[in-house]
Design a protein around this nucleic acid. Structure first.
Lengths: 151, 151
DNA sequence: ATTACAATGTAGCCTTGGCTACACTTGTGA
DNA sequence: TCACAAGTGTAGCCAAGGCTACATTGTAAT
């Protein structure tokens, strides 16, 4: 059958909640991590491109309100992925950079595979945004292998 | 760059909220639809296999508490995808069956493509659970084409 | 017919991730 | 300098999707 108890969980290591709430829903966890991955990747992009990452830019790029972006940035901080001081922009920690790197590589790989399968570029980019978060290491490896063996 | 304002939205047509809340977050919408798709597919499976779909079975299969399952079943009803009377099990409406069928076909296709790319069966099944919800029509078509042309 | 147990349902709580509305900084241009 | 627009931050609301704890219903066995 098609169903599994839980989907593959994205590759963010979670905040490591202190004592509270040791009983965690995997899906809850997984969904949260998806958002953190997107933010980390985007912030890395903005830092590389502009030398800074401002909440408003992040919000615009993600199509959410700036309030939502700021809230999520707070979660990034709690998760040890970013640092930010009021009115001074957002930066990534070592951990955040690592995550962003992994996410970026994965994204490229997924897009390339989709395109290799004949998916139009636009759809490939768009779908990859959703798909990439659910690609396991094992699948990632197979993708790389496939692309290589295919020229 | 990799980012888009919103991911591809799953193929559930939403509850058509009455007057309230005409300003909807796409992502919110998308995430909700993912869960509804999973439930519809699972309920169809259970109905086919056992002739009935009971909340506890659904909960066990999805790895959530029965209370969570029941809450979501209520949402399925609100969305016009299912019917259920207290203590009498869950059934799918025409619309719910249509959705389940589409989801099932899509799931198969995604799994088959992953396997064709050399992903081990287990990983293919597991990853497909997450991936399938983000595969657009366009990509789906490319997948089918790829499998056909590949024998 | 009773009773006991499993299944079902309800209530209430939490976090996430949206939003709007309002308040406060910052830094520019006049 | 200082006023004002743009950007930031805060508060408070909502729905989804988790959970636990408790109440109710159905059913099967005695």
């Amino acid at each position: 059958m098609a169903h599994h108890p839980a989907h593959h969980a994205p590759s963010v290591e979670l905040p490591a909640e202190p004592t509270q709430a040791r009983r965690f829903g995997k899906t809850r966890t997984a969904l949260s991590a998806v958002v953190l991955e997107d933010y980390a990747e985007l912030i890395a992009d903005l830092l590389a491109a502009n030398g800074e990452a401002r909440p408003t830019d992040i919000a615009r790029r993600l199509g959410v309100s700036h309030a939502t972006a700021i809230k999520t940035i707070a979660r990034l901080k709690r998760a040890g992925l970013a640092t930010a001081r009021p009115y001074r922009g957002v930066f990534l920690t070592e951990k955040g950079h690592d995550l962003a790197d992994r996410v970026r590589v994965r994204h490229r790989l997924v897009v390339d595979v989709l395109r290799a399968l004949g998916v139009p570029s636009e759809a490939a980019e768009a779908d990859a945004e959703g798909i990439e978060h659910y690609v396991s290491e094992s699948t990632l490896k197979a993708f790389a292998q496939f692309l290589k063996s295919r020229g």
